[in-house]
């Protein structure tokens, strides 16, 4: 495993730890989109259906279990925890899941490497992950007040994807990795969606101002 890939996985893990810290220690999910979190559960469940069938490495299996477990527990906290659920910005988190899920599913049926259940689900998870952050970005845009934890959470999620792009470049040139258009292009789109957020995040950090996205 190369350093970019490890850095990507670690920023991904760190983003989840940060969000769980906000939820468990501060008993708040203010500014967090339940829609996006539910989409991540769907992403992980559909991508990791091969968990019980195919073994890659101990690291790989553990990370998959961690991502599945943490994403499900985050959704549980936001929906059912009696204190946390009251901090959820329900009225502004109105992005409809189906507008993302349906097109991604149709696209996965049409564009995939092999027309098998596992492969279509895997492809669907890549397409859905690419756009799953959209409800969260919409929520941030509508929020007047973005706390540091939420801003850092979204930044780490974007950083994770940027590291994966570097990882693919490294694997292609150094490890003679084959061309893989589906994950590469969806990963590129996923990273591009963060571009605007990155711009305002870095700007607010440089000017030591509170993060605010223009409406």
């Amino acid at each position: 495993m190369n350093a970019f890939r490890l850095a990507g996985d670690m920023t991904h893990l760190l983003s989840i730890i940060l969000l769980l810290h906000k939820i468990r220690a501060m008993k708040s999910c203010a500014g967090i989109s339940l829609r996006t979190q539910e989409l991540y559960v769907i992403v992980f469940v559909t991508r990791y259906v091969d968990l019980s069938m195919k073994y890659y490495s101990f690291y790989n299996s553990i990370m998959k279990i961690v991502f599945l477990g943490t994403s499900i527990s985050i959704v549980w906290y936001m929906r059912y925890h009696k204190v946390v659920k009251q901090t959820y910005n329900k009225d502004v988190d109105t992005f409809r899941h189906i507008f993302l899920i349906l097109p991604c599913f149709v696209l996965a049926l049409l564009i995939n490497r092999a027309f098998t259940v596992i492969e279509v689900l895997w492809t669907f998870s890549l397409y859905l992950e690419a756009v799953a952050i959209l409800p969260q970005l919409v929520l941030l845009q509508r929020s007047r007040n973005i706390d540091n934890l939420t801003g850092n959470y979204v930044f780490l999620l974007g950083a994770y994807r940027a590291f994966y792009l570097l990882n693919w470049i490294y694997r292609f040139f150094i490890e003679n990795h084959q061309v893989r258009w589906i994950p590469w292009l969806s990963g590129l789109l996923q990273t591009a969606i963060y571009a605007d957020f990155f711009y305002y995040y870095i700007k607010s950090w440089k000017n030591r101002e509170k993060l605010k996205l223009p409406a």
Binding site: Y56, R171, Q178, R180
Partner: peptide, 10 residues
């Protein structure tokens, strides 16, 4: 192997 390479990612 080459056919499973991206699948070892998360």
């Amino acid at each position: 192997s080459a056919s499973t390479d991206v699948k070892d990612e998360l």
